[in-house]
Design a binder for these strands. Structure first.
Lengths: 235, 235
DNA sequence: GCATATTTGTCCGTATGTATA
DNA sequence: CTATACATACGGACAAATATG
């Protein structure tokens, strides 16, 4: 999925993850990406080149190449002669992210009249994983599972490019959640919704599933935007 | 919105050239991007680091930063220890690109029940520009106008991120056209279709417009894929 | 408002590893 | 198989801009 490299896997459309990641910069970018979506570096924090090279054991040039990639993914923002900072989304960004999600998720679901079996299975697996995490009160994994659910929904489109874009959008959405540290109440209510959507999809009613997802996204966006604007005014 | 870097203007679909572009790497990337969509470097051609630094007057480090960006945009492909090559799309890529375009364009058009006036104007302007170019038999500008038309259609979504993704998809599509050097017969028949779509949109029938666009994309994909597979078998 | 310290932006040289003639 | 060419990655250098006192 992040394998932007060799030509071989592009032709197959398959994602190769096992072989060691090609270049050092890509490796570093992947590492930082993980740290960013895990919330290791809080949104808005500046990332010092010097310190990070030291920490990661790479040269400044290599680190800067990784920075560029993550800036392009909007996980980092770059300010001339000031350095790079962890992305700090605003309520406008939240709205835009949901616009993008509607664009990516709804058509994929609605048009899934004869979906690939494997793709549907992935959707169901994400639902299961989320419910299991809720049982264990593992809120972090619950959030991850919820994200994976939406990734799987977009995956119904069977397009490598759409998938890639979706994963970027979701990564940025993780930043949004880190801005307002409260995964539990923002994910928990939606698990049942996910279950319902998967059931409708699996039972051959993609349009019904899409309608459910549409209202899901509406309410989710409302909840996030109101919480966000409240926080922005407080600051 | 926190201006990431240069991306603020991509949201408007407009390219900002007057304000000094922030970093050298971004500048080089933009320059190469233009050259690539203009077909200066033919698909598949290897780009020598040494020669390009010389040509562009930048260091290898800076050039490599630019390369990473363009690899992420799929305009270049990177092979370990071999260098970067201009993207050489296959028929599978063409199919995937059209999947992405359907995802981005159709919902934007279909949901444009109360579109922003400016957005509709941009669609119309692209249609006019295409027809004018056809009059002058300026096939290259005709192709550009056609691309701008589809960018404007996606722009109806009013989402910066959707717009950005769309421009990437279209840039890659330019590569496809360069693989089979024949812009005239691939763009000319579709200008009338564009006009019809804009008329339907402007007259308040976005669903009708979307239906037109759907068949447009179907026939366009068919034409390209058949031409492409024929070319692949020939080689 | 000013002088200083810090950090980034960019370049160059070089050692190592890989692919190709 | 050897040799050559090239990409990879590192570290150091200096100028320019910013942050700090």
């Amino acid at each position: 999925m992040t394998a932007t490299d060799t030509r071989a896997d592009r032709s197959t459309g398959r994602t190769r993850l096992l072989p060691p990641m090609p270049t050092q910069a890509e490796r570093v970018a992947e590492l930082l990406r993980e740290s960013l979506i895990d919330g290791v570096y809080p949104p808005g924090r500046r990332l010092s080149e010097e310190r990070l090279c030291e920490e990661l054991g790479v040269s400044r040039n290599t680190l800067r190449e990784a920075f560029r990639l993550l800036v392009r993914e909007r996980l980092l923002v770059h300010q001339m002669h000031r350095g790079v900072f962890v992305g700090l989304p605003t309520s406008d960004d939240v709205r835009d992210l949901f616009k993008a999600r509607r664009t990516l998720e709804l058509p994929a679901l609605r048009d899934a009249t004869a979906p690939a079996e494997e793709a549907v299975r992935l959707v169901g697996a994400a639902v299961d994983e989320g419910e299991a995490a809720r049982e264990r009160e593992d809120w972090w994994r619950m959030g991850t599972a919820n994200m994976r659910f939406h990734q799987a929904v977009a995956g119904l489109s069977e397009s490598a490019r759409v998938n890639e874009f979706m994963s970027q959008v979701l990564a940025e959405t993780r930043l949004v959640f880190h801005v307002m540290d409260a995964p539990r109440e923002f994910h928990a209510p939606y698990l049942d919704w996910n279950r319902r959507i998967h059931t409708l999809l699996a039972s051959g009613d993609p349009r019904g599933a899409a309608e459910e997802l549409a209202t899901y996204l509406d309410t989710s966006e409302d909840q996030l935007v109101t919480a966000f604007t409240a926080m922005e005014e407080r600051a």
